[in-house]
């Protein structure tokens, strides 16, 4: 008994304090559901929740609800989305990582069974070394790689993820067999950061946001970034400048189930466009250090295709799929 009373009290006080009680049913159109195919707290979840707030501010009479379907690089969420054919009230947040995960997990469902809606944001990758490292430039790195790839340990996120793909592409550009990359997978940026700060590994690859603070404080040194142009307030050359012809953005976007009617397709695209134009979205993009790279319709569908081809090729070259 006491347990329940306590529970109810706690729940009530949370509601009261945060002032975000439920608004009850009703409203103009049917509720939009946004699936974050990952656990709460990660990048896709964050994007979904920011989008929820932005849609609520841009189209106040539309109900929006975020739900999480975590697991296997998003492919479990993808399989669930594929089962909702023709549902015009469902969006799924996804991105580059999912493209790789589909390949690697041999997922039966692919992105061909979705309707691409929009690309939203990009984040670039950064290549760093510990402050004490003898490597000063990308050319030094290329030379070290060529001398003995086994001696260059690369810290990054999960095997086959964005960081690993960047490392593979860089090795290839430097004339080293991507299979030879001595990649040390870590769970999450924190662990890899620890290995770098402790000078346990040769280089680190991760999202700019993960390492930028430590580059600025001088604990890590940036060798390069994967963007096409130099990033503002970060003193690091692009990979191209450093002689490695690699460009890669960790992008995120929305897809909807396959088999949408043209009207539903247009309605979703319009809604997402309105969201993108809202001040709430712009603020959130700035706050999270994302780069706005909005793209819809055929343009996004084409982009998705080309990314699929590229990722497929490099994952195979790295020996990650059998």
């Amino acid at each position: 008994m006491r347990l329940r009373i306590l529970a109810a009290l706690a729940a009530l006080s949370v509601l009261a304090v945060s002032g975000c009680g439920d608004t009850g049913s009703g409203g103009g159109t049917s509720a939009l559901r946004i699936m974050a195919p990952a656990a709460p707290g990660g990048g896709w979840d964050q994007t979904s929740r920011v989008a929820e707030q932005a849609i609520k501010s841009a189209v106040p009479d539309r109900q929006v609800e975020v739900f999480n379907v975590p697991g296997a690089g998003g492919t479990i969420g993808l399989a669930q989305l594929a089962g909702e054919k023709g549902n015009g009230d469902l969006l799924m947040t996804m991105g580059l990582v999912m493209v790789g995960a589909i390949e690697q997990n041999k997922s039966k469902v692919t992105l061909a069974e979705t309707t691409p809606i929009a690309k939203l944001t990009e984040e670039y990758e950064i290549i760093v070394v510990p402050a004490e490292s003898p490597l000063k430039t990308l050319a030094d790195l290329a030379a070290a790689w060529k001398a003995d790839p086994a001696k260059v340990s690369v810290a990054g996120g999960s095997a086959g993820g964005t960081d690993h793909i960047v490392a593979g592409l860089m090795a290839k550009a430097a004339g080293v067999d991507p299979k030879q990359v001595n990649y040390i997978a870590h769970s999450g940026g924190g662990e890899a950061l620890n290995a770098l700060l402790g000078n346990k590994v040769t280089i680190g690859v991760s999202g700019v946001g993960e390492f930028a603070e430590h580059v600025k404080s001088g604990k890590l040194r940036a060798l390069g970034v994967t963007s096409a142009e130099r990033l503002p307030d970060l003193d690091a050359p692009t990979l191209k400048e450093g002689g490695m012809d690699v460009e890669l953005a960790n992008w995120r976007g929305f897809v909807a189930p396959a088999g949408l009617s043209d009207a539903d397709h247009k309605a979703l695209t319009d809604l997402v466009t309105k969201m993108h134009d809202s001040q709430a979205w712009k603020d959130a993009v700035a706050k999270n250090g994302w780069i706005d790279s909005f793209m819809t319709g055929q343009e996004f569908a084409g982009y998705l295709k080309s990314e699929e081809t590229r990722v497929k090729a490099i994952i195979a070259e790295m020996g990650l799929v059998s």
């Binding site: 690697q104 997990n105 999960s158 095997a159 997978a185 769970s187």
Partner: peptide
Amino acid sequence: GIDQQTGQA
């Protein structure tokens, strides 16, 4: 589950 180092199931 997936082997973290090589991504194999």
